[in-house]
Structures are given as structure tokens and as C-alpha cells.
């Protein structure tokens, strides 16, 4: 039996995977789109559809995120407007690169290679972050402050006055926006993992304003990205719908778990999952290139399995903390 052109089993798989992705996104506040495009690539969707559907998913989740933050979100509208224009240009450029690569038959390989690198690098940074926090509580706010001071000292007109009264070159803001937009249009990610540190540490935007501004930017640019890929017929709408159905619920569960679970306890798992995602995409490409079905099977198991394990770890730690239980075997496995 089929619904919206997908078998019920596949529909269930996407809703379930969306649930896992939502738990991760709700808990860590990032990573929502990191896994969707790679998962679609691993499942054999063409790279244009995987990226386009990833962007549509990003748009849907950011709409929900914007609604959740609407009461306490502080937004720097001037910064957001400049960033949105720059990101839109970047997304269009990134999309054009994808379609040029698609015409030459190299899109799957190049986008997969980019994901192997991206997930690998972000995974290693997250792992380092987790290990550093284990070793000491030392903050790096001073370094971020220094960088923001240096960026704000660049007097390349026109200058923009930010909401906190600081001034920054519009050229720098546009450059950051275009760079994030290209990545977004090329890989189908929201770019929040780059925008947030760029705004806080690079431009010196206060964290509360950065969060609200980030959500507004990703919502509008995500809508544009989804529109531009939809115009090329590269969005699998039933897949996006099923993923969103699961992730909207998962995000509530993940956000709820933050009340009981210290994310430092789980960060190591999250890093391992990103590294597993990187391996999965590499295994899929190797399996396809050399005709090794075992590699393709392993890639599917890695990407879905790692998302399941990390989401389960979050829920298990939450349950153990809720019950004040650190002695049960499962609680001893997941708690330090």
C-alpha cells in the first residue's frame, strides 16, 4: 500500500528518522539538517533531490523554531536583512554549482565528498570540545572577544550599527552571509552551526540576539532555498512531510530532555555520530564505485544506527536522571 507515492514502510522509516533527528536537534540546538541530506544520499536519492529536500526540511524546522522563540526572541533586523540578502545570493550560487555538477555527472561524488569533510571536521571539533570540557571548565570568551574587536576594527564602508550599539563593516557581514549561503545551497544545510559562532565570536553580537537573528535568517533563506530547488523539481515533498512529522515531535522531546540532561554528558556521543555519518557517506560512495553491496549496507546501518544510538542515549539519561537512578545497568552504561 502506498501513501503520497511512498510505501507505508518507507513513510514510517522517514517519520522515525525524523523523530531521531528532531530529538538531536531539540537537545543540541544544531545538527537538524546534518543528517537528512546524507541519509537521502545514502538511500540513493539523486544529489539534487537530497540537497533540495534537505533545504525544505530546514525551512520547516526553522518555521517551528521561530514559532517557539517568538515570545523571547530578540532580533537585530538590520543585521538579519543584510545577511538574508547575502545568504540568498550565496544559496543561488550554491544551487547553480550543484546543477552544473549534476549536468557533468559529478554531483553525487562532489557533494558526498563535501559531506565526508564537513561531518568529519564538525565531528572532530565537537569531540575536542567534549574532551576539553571534561578536562577543564576554562572558557574561551576572551578569544572570541578579541576576534570580535578585530572584526569591528575593520573600517570598510559602509559601516552598520548593530542593535547593541557596536559598528561593523557591511562588507564583512555580506561576506559571511554569502559564504554561509553557498554552503547552504550546496549542501542543503541551514548553516546555523556557522552563523551562530560567526555572529557571536566574529561580529560580537550578544548570544540572545544572535539566536533570534539566526532563526529569522535561516527561516527566510531556507524558504528561498526550498523555492529555488522546488522550481527545478528537486524536492521530494512526501519525504520532507514525513521527516517533519517526526522531527517536530522529536524536537519537543529533545528540548524537554535538556531540563534533565547535561549536554556535556552526551556531547561525545554526538561527535561520534557525526563521524559515523562521515564514514557512512564515504562507505556509500566506495560501495557504489567498486560495486561492494556490503559497503552500501554498512553506510545505511551507520547513519541510521548512530542517530538511533545517540537519541536513545539522550532519552535513557533523561529517564535515569528523572528517576534519580544511577545504579541500573543501562543507567551505568550511559552515565559517567
Amino acid at each position: 500500500m502506498e501513501l503520497f507515492g511512498l510505501s507505508l514502510v518507507l513513510l514510517g522509516v522517514f517519520v522515525g528518522f525524523g523523530l531521531l533527528v528532531g530529538i538531536l536537534f531539540g537537545f543540541f540546538g544544531m545538527g537538524g539538517s546534518f543528517l537528512v541530506t546524507p541519509a537521502l544520499l545514502v538511500m540513493g536519492y539523486p544529489s539534487t533531490v537530497a540537497v533540495g529536500s534537505g533545504l525544505a526540511f530546514v525551512f520547516g524546522t526553522s518555521v517551528i523554531g521561530a514559532l517557539r522563540h517568538r515570545d523571547h526572541g530578540q532580533v537585530d533586523y538590520k543585521l538579519a536583512a543584510i545577511m538574508i540578502v547575502a545568504m540568498t545570493l550565496g544559496i543561488e550560487a550554491g544551487k547553480n554549482v550543484v546543477f552544473v555538477l549534476d549536468a557533468t555527472g559529478a554531483a553525487d561524488l562532489v557533494i558526498s565528498a563535501a559531506y565526508v569533510g564537513l561531518l568529519g571536521v564538525v565531528g572532530l571539533f565537537t569531540l575536542r570540545d567534549a574532551r576539553t570540557n571534561d578536562d577543564s571548565d576554562g572558557g574561551d570568551g576572551a578569544a572570541g572577544g578579541d576576534l570580535a574587536d578585530r572584526v569591528r576594527s575593520i573600517h570598510l564602508p559602509p559601516m552598520v550599527t548593530l542593535r547593541d550599539g557596536g559598528r561593523v563593516s557591511a562588507v564583512v557581514v555580506v561576506a559571511v552571509g554569502v559564504a554561509v549561503g553557498v554552503l547552504s545551497g550546496f549542501l542543503g544545510v541551514g548553516g546555523g552551526f556557522l552563523l551562530m559562532p560567526a555572529m557571536i565570536y566574529g561580529l560580537g553580537v550578544p548570544a540572545a540576539i544572535a539566536v533570534g537573528t539566526d532563526i529569522l535568517q535561516i527561516t527566510v533563506s531556507g524558504a528561498f532555498g526550498a523555492f529555488t530547488y522546488a522550481r527545478a523539481g528537486s524536492i521530494a515533498l512526501p519525504v520532507v512531510g514525513a521527516l517533519l512529522t517526526g522531527s517536530a515531535l522529536g524536537a519537543r522531546v529533545g528540548a524537554g530532555a535538556t531540563q534533565f540532561v547535561d549536554d556535556e554528558e552526551i556531547k561525545g556521543y554526538f561527535a561520534a555520530m557525526l563521524l559515523a555519518g562521515s564514514l557512512a557517506v564515504a562507505a556509500k560512495e566506495l560501495g557504489a564505485a567498486y560495486g561492494i553491496p556490503a559497503f552500501t549496507a554498512a553506510s545505511t546501518a551507520l547513519i541510521f544506527g548512530s542517530a538511533f544510538v545517540v537519541s536513545a542515549a539522550i532519552l535513557l539519561v533523561a529517564v535515569c536522571e528523572l528517576r534519580a537512578d544511577r545504579r541500573t545497568r543501562w543507567c551505568r552504561v550511559v552515565l559517567p
Partner: peptide
Amino acid sequence: AATVGVVFVEA
């Protein structure tokens, strides 16, 4: 535009 609208309404 309708595709983006469907995603928006679903969200």
C-alpha cells in the same frame, strides 16, 4: 511557491 507553502502550513 505552492511546495514551500505546503511545508509552511505543515510546520
